[in-house]
Write a protein that binds this DNA or RNA. Structure first.
Lengths: 246, 246
DNA sequence: CGCTACGTTGAGTGGCATCAAGCGCGGTGG
DNA sequence: CCACCGCGCTTGATGCCACTCAACGTAGCG
């Protein structure tokens, strides 16, 4: 199976073999492993390279002075940690590993080559950014307007859909390395209330959740419960060539 | 006084006279006026050009099927409605005018000229985007972690700071064309509770609010109340040349 | 086998929503 | 000119959703 990020970019533009080779070269120069619950980069760090998540889950988060913590976005396999970070000197928030994370680093020169000499890759990367922004806005809606149950249902729908895009689902199941505390910091709820809401989702058969594995027996039902409309993920754009692989 | 957007871009990069002339040309080709409470663009609309807000306030918002509405971001004078929208066919959310809005349209060709032939403008536009993303994340924190009073205090600090950047403050005052309903749809609170929270902010002297005018007698106090840390607005980057104008 | 992290459960509380009514003001038309 | 209306602001009463505090269960692990 192709790596997640290739699979993902390929859905946003039809890449040539040449494009893919260049991508492979640029992303296989340097990498590292970050243990679960460690920081990938910390707020204030000097920006060296762009990190691409090859495996594992990470998140962007911000702390308030009194210790409250908000996870502002999830970074799943194939996702890039902020392209536009190159115009910045220092990180303006921290990125933490949720599970063990495998990183690939993209150097400034490598990125510039991609952007200038590979227009289809450039297009795909623009899409990546656009979708990331759109997700960020949807989270605003989630936190501002939805009830606890809707928030969690919506989150699960989003996660499942994003993982499916990069081939990390298995039937109606996928991994879910988030603790209930994590879920609370994503949805703006207390861990206790997350627990009770999960029980409700379970008892109504909307989700099955055990040993870090999420199963969604009927996606439509969960989507209804979470008012999930996948439009903001812009899957409608997904490349024509997918017809061949699906 | 220079137009807001020029003033803003100039804080993100030092523009030459040539840069400014080109910007002026590109943005003065076409424009339109949108009345208060009308939509600037509607979800599903075909994307024609990039809109730049020359005057007035607008907002991006999303509706839920049952009528709930969330304002996901404020667009103030000098702000651009999504650069990366050119890779999209149709708008994925609506933009509404809060007060009467004066728009300038940037054509695809005009934008491409700017991005390729004017590196400093390109840099400034990247910054614009980066800051917009950062603001979006901060709103996630606001909705997820802060109390009603903190949310509104934080919002006021952000608005005042952003307006100050483009020269639209007057001492410790600025315009605030938002209704309490708008404030509720921004902060995820009911209009009734916004009202009561505003009274609390007023009675403690943190803000003065009357006839669409916001006054912040002591910015530090309000910032403390809202846990406002301006780092996410990246003002520290603001150009060296500002020394001359301030 | 104790430690730690995570999950679960119960009781009590409170922040914010909802419902409802009234007020003030500017706009509009008879 | 004034009655009328609509919109936004204000206030009170009531209730619920979600928080806090606290205790206990459970599983992985050194």
């Amino acid at each position: 199976m192709p790596p997640a990020f290739l699979r993902k970019l390929n859905t946003f533009a039809v890449l040539s073999q040449d494009d893919e080779q260049m991508l492979d070269m640029v992303t296989s120069q340097r990498g590292r492993i970050v243990a679960a619950r460690e920081d990938v980069v910390r707020i204030g760090d000097r920006v060296q390279a762009i990190n691409l998540i090859a495996s594992g889950w990470a998140c962007r988060y911000r702390m308030l002075p009194d210790g409250r913590r908000q996870i502002v976005s999830l970074i799943l396999p194939g996702d890039i940690c902020d392209l536009n970070i190159f115009v910045i000197q220092r990180m303006d928030l921290s990125i933490g590993a949720i599970s063990e994370v495998g990183l690939r680093e993209i150097s400034r020169e490598g990125l510039e080559t991609l952007l200038t000499a590979h227009p289809r890759v450039r297009q795909a990367l623009w899409w990546e950014q656009l979708v990331a922004n759109s997700i960020q806005r949807e989270w605003t809606v989630n936190l501002g307007q939805r009830t606890a149950l809707e928030r969690i249902a919506h989150l699960f729908c989003e996660i499942f859909t994003r993982l499916k895009l990069v081939g990390l689902t298995d039937g109606d199941s996928c991994e879910l390395p988030l603790t209930q505390i994590d879920l609370g910091e994503i949805t703006g709820l207390s861990a206790v209330h997350v627990n009770r809401t999960l029980q409700e989702l379970r008892s109504t058969g909307l989700v099955v959740l055990r040993s870090r594995m999420l199963t969604i027996p009927n996606f439509g039902n969960l989507a209804d419960a979470g008012l999930f409309d996948p439009g903001y993920l812009h899957l409608d754009h997904v490349g024509r060539h997918l017809d061949a692989t699906e």
